[in-house]
Simulated scan of single mutants.
Amino acid sequence: MKRNVLLVALFTVTLPVIAADLEPVLGKKGALIKQETFDGPDVPKGWVANTGSLRIAEGKLHAAEKSSDKHIGAFRHRLPLQDCAVQMDFKLGSMRIINLGYDPAPGELKKKGHLFSVVVTPESWSIIEHNDKANPESKTKKLATANTNFDPETTYTLLLECKGNDVIAHVTGKDSLKATAPDFHVKKPGLVFRMGGKDGQEAIIDNVKVWALE
């Protein structure tokens, strides 16, 4: 009897801890459009490094900037979206910045460049509306921000929800950020990730899920 109890105890402590999904507040989760756990040996098809580098290690996606690119590490996953909720686990590591956001789909806006992003640094996080690169007078706007520390070795879960012109970002253990802008409702061609750091530094992403938001 004692041997059976010991075996049960050993089995219990080795079970993996799976974080619960965060829940949106702008609407309800609809269809699960995308799920990626990065369990294979190679970067999954469709995850593209425009600049920087991507690799898989220990079942997670490692993303880095390369100084030779002279540009922050920029990565995309094509996935047509509009009203949606995107969740991912991330670890900042020694990186100085992580972004998750969107571009406007072609033909949606008379604008060049990104639409909006949630930006995480070791000391703060924000929702920003990006400038129009075709307009020299256009400026990037910080629509919501909070000064709060992100431990470099802690894995956080981020949920970014967008419905109409409203955006809310949630991170485990942090107060949510909210923002609104007239152009946020447009169609989006996919996910945009950006990672900034020195050569040899990496951010880690895992458990990406994308839902339609109803």
Score class of each variant (00 low, 15 high):
residue 135 N to L: 05
residue 43 V to G: 05
residue 67 S to T: 13
residue 92 L to P: 07
residue 10 L to W: 10
residue 110 K to R: 14
residue 63 A to C: 07
residue 179 A to Y: 01
residue 201 Q to M: 14
residue 4 N to H: 10
residue 140 T to H: 06
residue 62 H to M: 08
residue 209 K to N: 07
residue 181 A to Q: 15
residue 197 G to V: 12
residue 177 L to C: 04
residue 161 E to L: 05
residue 16 P to V: 01
residue 22 L to S: 08
residue 63 A to L: 14
residue 119 V to T: 15
residue 173 G to A: 01
residue 198 K to R: 15
residue 178 K to L: 04
residue 20 A to Y: 03
residue 4 N to Q: 11
residue 56 I to D: 08
residue 30 G to H: 08
residue 167 V to E: 05
residue 195 M to Q: 06
residue 113 G to R: 14
residue 65 E to C: 11
residue 199 D to L: 07
residue 58 E to S: 14
residue 213 L to M: 05
residue 140 T to Q: 15
residue 54 L to K: 01
residue 16 P to I: 01
residue 199 D to F: 02
residue 28 K to Y: 00
residue 185 H to F: 11
residue 41 P to E: 10
residue 22 L to I: 07
residue 196 G to V: 01
residue 13 V to L: 14
residue 102 Y to V: 00
residue 212 A to E: 12
residue 131 N to H: 14
residue 191 L to A: 05
residue 1 M to V: 05
residue 69 D to P: 09
residue 92 L to G: 04
residue 123 E to D: 14
residue 109 L to W: 05
residue 123 E to M: 02
residue 184 F to K: 07
residue 155 T to G: 09
residue 118 V to A: 12
residue 70 K to F: 00
residue 83 D to H: 08
residue 111 K to M: 02
residue 157 T to I: 02
residue 153 E to H: 12
residue 55 R to T: 09
residue 130 H to K: 14
residue 174 K to I: 02
residue 68 S to M: 11
residue 202 E to C: 04
residue 122 P to I: 09
residue 110 K to M: 04
residue 197 G to K: 10
residue 2 K to S: 06
residue 188 K to A: 00
residue 175 D to M: 08
residue 26 L to T: 03
residue 151 D to C: 01
residue 168 I to H: 08
residue 135 N to P: 13
residue 9 A to E: 11
residue 25 V to K: 13
residue 99 N to F: 10
residue 108 E to I: 04
residue 102 Y to N: 01
residue 168 I to E: 07
residue 32 L to H: 01
residue 159 L to D: 04
residue 83 D to K: 11
residue 167 V to G: 05
residue 165 N to K: 13
residue 155 T to Q: 13
residue 102 Y to C: 00
residue 89 D to Q: 13
residue 204 I to A: 07
residue 25 V to W: 03
residue 47 W to M: 01
residue 210 V to R: 00
residue 181 A to S: 15
residue 73 G to L: 07
residue 97 I to D: 06
residue 116 F to A: 10
residue 135 N to R: 15
residue 152 P to D: 02
residue 190 G to S: 03
residue 53 S to C: 03
residue 92 L to K: 08
residue 207 N to K: 14
residue 59 G to N: 02
residue 104 P to V: 04
residue 10 L to I: 02
residue 67 S to I: 06
residue 150 F to T: 03
residue 58 E to H: 11
residue 39 D to E: 12
residue 3 R to W: 09
residue 95 M to F: 02
residue 50 N to G: 05
residue 18 I to V: 12
residue 132 D to E: 06
residue 25 V to Q: 13
residue 157 T to V: 02
residue 21 D to Y: 07
residue 8 V to C: 11
residue 76 R to I: 10
residue 115 L to H: 09
residue 114 H to M: 13
residue 99 N to D: 12
residue 68 S to P: 09
residue 20 A to Q: 12
residue 73 G to F: 12
residue 136 P to G: 05
residue 64 A to S: 15
residue 4 N to A: 10
residue 121 T to H: 15
residue 23 E to D: 09
residue 144 A to I: 00
residue 116 F to Q: 05
residue 119 V to S: 13
residue 56 I to Q: 02
residue 65 E to Q: 15
residue 152 P to M: 03
residue 56 I to C: 01
residue 74 A to W: 14
residue 101 G to D: 03
residue 31 A to Y: 04
residue 64 A to T: 10
residue 15 L to P: 04
residue 141 K to C: 08
residue 101 G to V: 03
residue 123 E to F: 02
residue 22 L to G: 07
